[in-house]
């Protein structure tokens, strides 16, 4: 039986703020509120990476948030998609090239959908999530890794080790 078609009917969301000004977070919460009500599409804000399908990231990814973002990302079971919400998450926004930010989510983890706007409007976020669901439906169940990561994995994956290797590389990259 093919369960792929059910993926887009029940997207569970994990929302993570990597140093945003809370503008986009407010808009994401607005999506859950009665006016936009994304639970119509079966979406739930789980707050738990192990049970989520969509990772919605806001903020320009500060240096301190970088490692946490990676941990959360590796904790999510595949298939999963990442939606970067807001100008900061897409490219760093007004914080771009500051000493303490990574200039966007895609510098740390692979991003599938970019939602622009400062702050992104709820309609745009819903649109982004729907776009992400289309991508989610096509995705396989292989382990996804950040692009900069050169670790080779073969199933079953021990993610504790994987995380440590990725972190080594992440910190090594900063030093280099």
């Amino acid at each position: 039986m093919d369960f792929k078609s059910f993926r887009k009917k029940s997207p569970w969301i994990l929302h993570y703020n990597t140093g945003s000004c809370n503008g986009c977070d407010i808009e994401i919460l607005a999506c859950l509120a009665p006016k936009y009500d994304i639970e119509r599409f079966g979406a739930l804000n789980r707050g738990n990476p192990k049970q989520s399908d969509i990772l919605i990231v806001t903020g320009p990814v500060t240096k301190r948030a970088k490692e946490r973002l990676l941990r959360l990302y590796l904790e999510m079971p595949e298939p999963k998609v990442v939606v970067a919400v807001g100008a900061c998450a897409c490219s760093g926004g007004v914080f771009r090239h500051m000493y303490n930010v990574e200039n966007g989510v895609d510098k740390v983890i692979p991003v599938d959908v970019y939602v622009p706007g400062c702050a992104a409007r709820p309609e745009a976020i819903i649109d982004g999530v729907i776009k992400a669901l289309e991508i989610l439906e096509k995705k396989g169940k292989e382990v996804e890794l950040p692009r900069w990561c050169s670790v080779e994995v073969k199933p079953p994956v021990n993610r504790v080790k994987l995380l440590n290797r990725c972190l080594e590389e992440l910190h090594g990259r900063r030093r280099g």
Partner: peptide, 28 residues
């Protein structure tokens, strides 16, 4: 619950959609 909050809410079969989706997830 959604109607009580003035929302539309998910379809009636939503729990089963969740059920089948979870079936397809990679388990960790």
């Amino acid at each position: 619950r959604a109607r009580m909050q003035g929302r539309v809410g998910p379809p009636l079969l939503q729990p089963f959609y969740d059920f089948f989706k979870l079936m397809d997830k990679r388990s960790i």
